[in-house]
Nucleic acid binder design. Structure first.
Lengths: 226, 226
DNA sequence: ACCTGAACACCGTTCAAGT
DNA sequence: ACCTGAACACCGTTCAAGT
């Protein structure tokens, strides 16, 4: 009759690392990076700010843990494609959608350099690059290009979101303003940017992201068979 | 005898937007992003924290302005190469070195989404992509890929620097630890990352960065002549 | 016009004290 | 073992008061 497993029978509402991370993700999603404070978090968990420190060392660790929970779930949900290329695309799209649903992931990933969530992602990309048949000596460059590109897009999208949110305009309003600003640039100094003003307003983030992935995949292929 | 230009004859040590930005850059370089506070800055300028607000709206604007000063100087110093490809490489290397000398630039650029410094960089890349002969319909994707890649590397390098600085180990110490961590990963779950542990320790950031640029340039060329 | 510096409303984090 | 919440040492920003 004695329960040998030492799973403690806690009150339903007991604090735990996982419950804290879950609440942190919710707070980050709903109020953005600036909205995650130990006071707001502890209020949501019906406790004091100090309680959280029993389970988590500091805010940095909390952010990395929240990021890792999302990344792990995202990578696990990415189905393998028919070809390595298709799998890379599925992985990239999965990451894009995760960063779109959780705009704080981009900057969290950058701050988590070298830690668990980045290793997960690096490994997933690396396995597919291997599967593509890229020779050893060029694997590093190939993974690095895909990796930095994905992080760059994530960071940029997150910044755009934050900017739009701060000024209480939606995606359309943000793109409209940015497009107008580009159109108003000095023709002599900014001819290229100016010419893309319209394209900026109408572009599709997701499709453009994938186009970039394909471009890099094309570069990888071109290197292998010159 | 009357001086019609209204350039005021200020005391040498009068505050100005430019002097504030200059001091901010110095503080960011020497103490990192966390070291830039209005108190530290005003102390360095021998004034009170409130004085700065007469010249600059808030901290965000200060960071963008500091970033813009560095970017403008960097782009101006990039010499044109013999070919568009060479110019893209010169531009990329210039940005890499700037981000290496001022590790805070990476995250500042990401936060400055859509503002002056990013427009400058976008324009510079765009003009070279045009010069490469990329057709209109593919210019956006090409610029976007280079752009996000450069930002991604900048953000990542900045994070690595900050991490190394926080733990008071140098670049070698940081890479040594990271390499050891990769080598200690579970072979079954992280075969790719594990296999690159040694390469991580010995790699050359700058050369790898350029390899990525070349890979993307290769992808752009491959798209144009399939 | 430009600067001063105290004051306000926040932070992350610590820690004695409780259960 | 786990939680409480007051307290500490900071922030960015404001603003009456000065020159």
């Amino acid at each position: 009759m004695v329960n040998k497993t030492r799973s403690p029978q806690r009150r339903e509402d007991a604090l735990s690392r996982d419950r804290i991370i879950e609440a942190a993700i919710g707070l980050l999603d709903s109020t953005g990076e600036a909205g995650l404070t130990f006071r707001a978090l502890s209020e949501q968990l019906a406790t004091g700010p100090g309680a959280i420190y029993w389970h988590i060392a500091n805010k940095g660790e909390l952010l990395v843990a929240a990021c890792d929970a999302v990344i792990a779930a995202t990578l696990a949900a990415c189905a393998d494609g028919e070809t390595p290329e298709a799998t890379v695309r599925a992985l990239a799209v999965g990451m894009f959608d995760a960063m779109d649903a959780h705009p704080w992931i981009g900057s969290a990933l950058i701050h988590a350099a070298g830690q668990l969530p980045t290793v997960r992602l690096f490994e997933s990309i690396g396995q597919q690059v291997r599967a593509l048949g890229v020779p050893q000596s060029r694997q590093w460059a190939a993974v690095s290009a895909l990796w930095h590109y994905i992080l760059g897009v994530g960071g940029q999208n997150a910044a755009n979101r934050r900017s739009a949110q701060a000024r209480e305009i939606g995606r359309e309003g943000f793109l409209g303003e940015a497009s107008a600003a580009w159109a108003a640039l000095d023709e002599a100094r900014y001819p290229f940017t100016r010419s893309l003003a319209e394209q900026l307003r109408d572009h599709d983030d997701r499709a453009d992201f994938l186009a970039g992935i394909d471009l890099i995949l094309g570069g990888i292929k071109a290197q292998s068979q010159p």
